[in-house]
């Protein structure tokens, strides 16, 4: 009788641990699926923001070579641009101004609706702009 009880307990425990590990695996799979989803949405919005800024950039016609401008952009969670600061000038004032203007004109940025994905964009973004 006691042996029976012991046997049943063992079986129950084995079953429970199997269920537990299955649950864990499912949770891990769900987490990695979620991570991939978030990464996908982040990547998609990176492209959307880049395209919007590109569409609003009017390159000056006195550009020579392929100079790079870097900017730090502070954003609200709504995607609205709060400030744009040039962190590395191209050496061409007209080009620097054109990039800042394009970023300002692109406000609000298209941000993901998903909170986790949106967190990757707020509160600030770094921009690298090259003519070609």
């Amino acid at each position: 009788m006691e042996e029976d009880d012991a046997m049943r307990r063992m079986t129950d425990e084995t079953a429970a641990s199997e269920v537990r590990s299955l649950q864990q695996a499912a949770a891990r799979a769900a987490a990695s699926k979620r991570q991939a989803e978030v990464a996908g949405v982040v990547g998609q919005h990176r492209d959307l923001i880049s395209a919007k800024v590109r569409g609003n950039t009017r390159l000056p016609d006195n550009l020579t070579g392929n100079p790079e401008v870097r900017c730090l952009v502070k954003l609200l969670p709504t995607g609205e641009v709060q400030s744009v600061r040039v962190t590395k000038s191209s050496g061409n004032t007209a080009y620097d101004e054109a990039v800042v203007r394009a970023i300002e004109k692109s406000s609000p940025f298209p941000l993901p609706a998903d909170r986790d994905a949106r967190a990757a964009f707020v509160p600030e973004l770094s921009f690298v702009h090259r003519p070609k």
Binding site: S50, L125, S126, F127, V128
Partner: peptide, 9 residues
């Protein structure tokens, strides 16, 4: 901060 690249205008 995440970096966004923009090429051209």
């Amino acid at each position: 901060a995440m970096e966004i690249q923009v090429i051209g205008g």
